[in-house]
Amino acid sequence: MLRVLALTWIALALTLASLSARGQSDPPGSVPEYQLKAAFLERFRAFVHWPASHDPAQAKPAVLGIVGRNPFGPRLPLASKQPGGDARALRLVECTTPEDTLHCDIIFFCNAGSELTSASLRVLANHPILTVGETAEFARAGGMISMVPADRRIRLEINPTRVARTGLRIDPQLLQLATIVQGKDS
């Protein structure tokens, strides 16, 4: 019992330290990275068009699956304060198996292990589920959109081939903002 308490305290301390370190890494006056990413995840829904049979707008709230470590907690941070954001419009679920991802509308791969990511991407290969990662290789490695931190902003990379294969359609304005990449398989 004492060991459990001690481990809990240690975990809590590490978490606080991690959060404190993350907060100190963001420049003053700027939006924290994951807060910005959370806002982007919300706004993707406005610029991505699902097939009519899978349109998350038909069954609110849409489901945002987190594969890997959940950086947001139970709800998207500050989502409701962002323009165009609605925290209640996205329900967060943590996906621990590739099959869990099939019940989502958007899946955010956050520092997931390459095995789970690869398995999940394979499962989702032909499903109209938007896959978003945060590494530069994600879109090339079978994902659809990568939110890559660059020069104190988030740069988007989109793999339109991958998107088109699943029946999703990206708004041209979003494509205009993003860097178009091609997957390794194409």
Partner: peptide, 14 residues
């Protein structure tokens, strides 16, 4: 309409 995406994803250049 043309700048909705830029505003949404904070792309000043675009």
């Amino acid at each position: 309409r043309l700048t909705r995406a830029a505003l949404s994803f904070e792309d000043r250049v675009e």
